[in-house]
């Protein structure tokens, strides 16, 4: 499947993957982030149960301490 991840096209060898699987496959190591799929915010406790499907628009924002 192909998805859009932060405005760039990405290909995964699967029909759908969970948010957690995507984070593992992409080796995203940041501790805290905000993820939106097709404009809908996915809360942290839904990372395992939420599936990313072909054509989805996934947006991530990294949260770094400091303010």
């Amino acid at each position: 499947m192909r998805i859009i991840l932060n405005d760039r096209e990405e290909e995964f060898f699967s029909d759908s993957i969970s948010v957690n699987q995507m984070l593992e496959l992409k080796k995203f190591s940041f501790r805290l982030r905000v993820i939106k799929i097709n404009g809908v915010l996915i809360s942290k406790d839904k990372y395992e149960s939420t599936l990313i499907n072909d054509g989805d628009n996934v947006q991530m924002l990294y949260l770094m301490s400091g303010g």
């Binding site: 501790r31 805290l32 905000v34 915010l41 301490s65």
Partner: peptide, 12 residues
């Protein structure tokens, strides 16, 4: 906010 956890809480 200062802490990343608080940023996350506010955004959600």
């Amino acid at each position: 906010f200062d802490h990343a956890e608080m940023k996350e809480m506010l955004i959600e």
